[in-house]
Design a protein around this nucleic acid. Structure first.
Length: 753
DNA sequence: GTCACCGAGATTTTT
DNA sequence: TCTCGGTGAC
């Protein structure tokens, strides 16, 4: 058992063995922090005989939690199950599920997702008669959310001169009032938003010391992963929980802090040193993941940031190949070049598809990439995007289930009262909600006794609805989650409605609902699960995100995801695409130094995901908002010390004929050590390409089509060769005769008609 | 109350 | 390009 200690280096071992007292691990990228955390927990259980029940470990994503649990289970076996471990949100929502009644919430409170929250805010803004162009839902939500993350309640917000002053200066003086109404509405609905799961946990501990004490006694050892991403609220909870024993170990890397927009506050790291005088700080600086070139390139980037803790990340790994920069004229070509490169590298080095990842800044960039991968028959999986549980049909069913659990839930009520159609319109719903608020009465009381408040015609259907929901709530007492959910899906008429829709989309929606029911079945059939109630299922599902549905039969696929989702992961080959100004760094992040530094840290995270090879790519034009836009290479390319990067030989010849390169591109081409043999000189031709030459997608190129080439001029496709790895086309050019071109490189414009 | 059509805005990231 | 909310006809 102790032999695993031998596999650790000195600071890592220290991190595992220093179990008593406050510890902060500053862990550089790829320095094995998960190993340290894993072994630390294993060590506590096996060597120090600590009851796993009294260890709490907090992570940021479900994925990280799951991975850690799996790894611990490999060492300590089934003991791992009783660990109190998960994301901040899931662990605290479990605590609230047991304790929420102390702060006036029902224990079976509903969790509102972002859509529910926005809907509710929109309603409130409308009810207050405010202009929704001034009070944009996203703005309002942002203000409220960041207040909650800083532990500022609605009442405190209204009393806070600075916040109110800001709002007044921005012509939005009512935000505080909206916050207050919003809080009351959530409370009345027995619902919490994501921020409330933290905010209310803090409130619970603050107002009920007996409850806090219970958890302080229980949790003997507390560990926090990704500490640099904690917000103030999380920090206070951590401190409270650890106040008695002070056996708290936080692990983080300030260079990888990329969630400031969500309230993460790096100063927590500094405060931690201040709050614990006897804090032991251990630095993990040896990188085991990446080649020396990649590590040094990453260092050269992060060095440009002003705000950072001093550390020296180094590696004993081989030098490795240089980072390659791929240039493309368009987003489509970028996709094509990346796909081609993956194909070739995989062949040449006998890699698996799963060794490759393509990272991007925004989800919308995935489309061009997907197309190229599909065209080359490269299997891929996309992580993130919209989750299964955000689909309309799924949310509809879940709303029924949620409302059956909690009849005060306004958001679910609005969603299902007229679904399927039963002749109850918005006007009626508004009347009911307003009546509930005016009378200070619970929503459900009004709904049950609705006649005085609405037109006589709709009273009948509402009564039927009430009867149905009452029947459902009896069902969930008698049946397990699956049987109850199935019964509700069927009796509500939702299932039938979807079944009768024979369109393609209707079919897939029906299948999605079936899949949801399967997921519930799986949940109830899981022998390790103690709480199999519908409530427990809903709780869990609310905190799930897109990344958590991977029951892939074929795991050998290229991974596509945003950089944010890639944090904590590693791949042998990484392609970081879209290295362009306004995209990365995002145009919304270039206005302040702090924002720009966060973007740079994001770039640092991207670079350090790569083990063996890193490719960066950019396109000179790209479709955005459905329009073609020109773009310039990212300023971040200049941050990389030029001795670690080279221009790829894969770049297209069309660059030379494209619009004059930007200053960034120029600097790059001149400043970068050219280790590639330069392309053979192109023989002079008389043909001059038009200034606005834009290559077409040649995926559907066929014999007989007329094409234009930026150097060779106009021609006709004579023959296609798609047998080999590279698709080729023999083209008869008007000026220079026949040429066979590789379609992955050639810039061709398909001439219309 | 319902449906079909139109126009606007979105694309920064997640629990 | 896509999704969402608003509007007007029935």
């Amino acid at each position: 058992m102790t032999n695993y200690l031998d596999t650790l280096n000195e600071p890592q071992r220290e991190g595992v063995l220093t179990t008593e007292g406050p510890v902060m691990l500053i862990a550089g990228a790829g320095s094995g922090k998960t190993r340290v955390l894993t072994f630390r927990i294993a060590y506590l259980i096996q060597e120090k005989n600590v009851d796993p029940f009294s260890i709490m470990a907090l992570t940021f994503t479900n994925k990280a939690a799951k991975e850690m649990r799996d790894r611990i289970e490999k060492v300590v076996g089934s003991d791992a199950r009783s660990l109190m471990m998960g994301t901040f949100h899931s662990v605290f929502s479990r605590i609230l599920r047991a304790e929420a009644h102390h702060i006036g919430y029902p224990n079976n409170f509903t969790i509102y997702d972002t859509d529910d929250v926005k809907q509710l805010l929109r309603t409130i803004i409308k009810e207050k008669g405010l202009d929704d162009a001034v009070y944009k839902v996203n703005t309002v939500l942002g203000r409220i959310s960041s207040a909650k993350n800083k532990l500022i309640s609605a009442d405190e917000y209204l009393r806070n001169g600075e916040l109110m002053g800001d709002d007044a200066a921005n012509m939005r003086p009512e935000i505080g009032a909206i916050y207050k109404i919003y809080t009351n509405r959530l409370y009345k609905s027995g619902a919490m938003d994501f921020d409330d799961l933290l905010f209310n946990t803090d409130k619970l501990f603050k107002e009920h010391l007996d409850v806090l004490n219970k958890y302080q006694q229980r949790i003997q050892y507390l560990m926090v992963d990704e500490f640099q991403d904690t917000n103030l609220c999380q920090y206070y909870i951590i401190r409270k929980l650890a106040a008695v024993r002070e056996n708290v170990c936080v692990v983080g890397d300030d260079a990888q802090s990329i969630y400031a927009f969500r309230g993460a506050d790096i100063t927590n790291i500094l405060n931690f040193e201040r709050d614990y005088a006897d804090l032991k700080v251990i630095k993990l600086e040896q990188n085991y993941r990446s080649t020396s070139n990649i590590v040094q390139a990453a260092n050269s980037v992060i060095k440009r940031n002003r705000a950072q803790l001093p550390k020296n990340v180094w590696t004993a790994n081989e030098e490795g190949k240089l980072i390659e920069l791929i240039k493309a004229v368009s987003d489509n070509e970028e996709g094509r070049l990346v796909a081609t490169s993956i194909f070739q590298e995989r062949m040449q080095h006998q890699m698996k598809y799963s060794d490759f990842a393509i990272l991007y800044r925004t989800n919308s960039q995935s489309r061009a990439l997907e197309e190229s991968l599909r065209r080359m028959n490269i299997p891929y999986r996309m992580v993130g995007g919209l989750s299964f549980y955000q689909r309309k049909e799924i949310k509809d069913i879940l709303a029924y289930l949620r409302f059956t659990m909690n009849q005060q839930d306004e958001a679910s009520f609005r969603r299902i009262i007229n679904l399927p159609k039963r002749g109850i319109g918005d006007a009626t719903v508004d009347k009911i909600v307003v009546a509930a608020n005016d009378h200070g009465a619970p929503l459900w009381d009004i709904v049950q006794n609705v006649t005085p408040f609405v037109g006589g015609r709709v009273a009948g259907p509402i009564d039927d609805f009430v009867t149905m929901i009452k029947r459902f709530s009896i069902e969930i007492e008698r049946k397990d989650a699956y049987d109850a959910a199935f019964e509700i899906a069927k009796s509500s008429g939702l299932l039938r409605e979807l079944y009768e829709d024979k369109t393609v989309e209707g079919l897939s929606r029906y299948e999605n609902v079936q899949e949801l029911l399967n997921a519930i079945k799986e949940f109830t059939d899981d022998p390790e699960r103690q709480d199999k109630s519908l409530g427990a299922f809903l709780q869990e599902v609310s905190l799930l995100t897109g990344q958590d549905e991977e029951k892939d039969k074929d795991p050998d696929k290229v991974t596509l995801m945003t950089i944010h989702m890639a944090k904590g992961l590693e791949f042998k080959y990484v392609y970081m695409v879209g290295m362009e100004e306004d995209l990365f760094p995002s145009q919304m992040m270039i206005n302040s130094r702090a924002d720009l530094e966060e973007e740079r840290r994001l770039f640092y995270v991207a670079i350090t995901r790569a083990e063996k090879r890193l490719f960066l790519s950019y396109a000179l034009s790209r479709y955005r908002f459905g329009r073609l836009k020109n773009s310039e290479p990212s300023r971040f390319l200049d941050d990389i010390d030029s001795s670690f990067i080279k221009v790829s030989s894969k770049f297209s010849s069309a660059i030379e004929s494209s619009p004059p390169p930007s200053q960034y591109a120029k600097k790059l081409v001149s400043g970068i050590k050219k280790t590639v043999t330069s392309a053979p000189p192109i023989r002079p031709v008389t043909y001059k390409p038009p200034a606005d030459f834009i290559p077409s997608d040649t995926g559907a190129l066929q014999v007989g089509m007329r094409v234009e080439h930026p150097k060779f001029g106009f021609g006709t496709v004579l023959q296609m060769d798609t047998s080999g790895a590279d698709r080729k086309a023999k083209i008869g050019f008007k000026d220079i005769g026949e040429k066979t071109l590789l379609l992955s490189f050639a810039k061709l414009r398909i001439v219309e008609n």
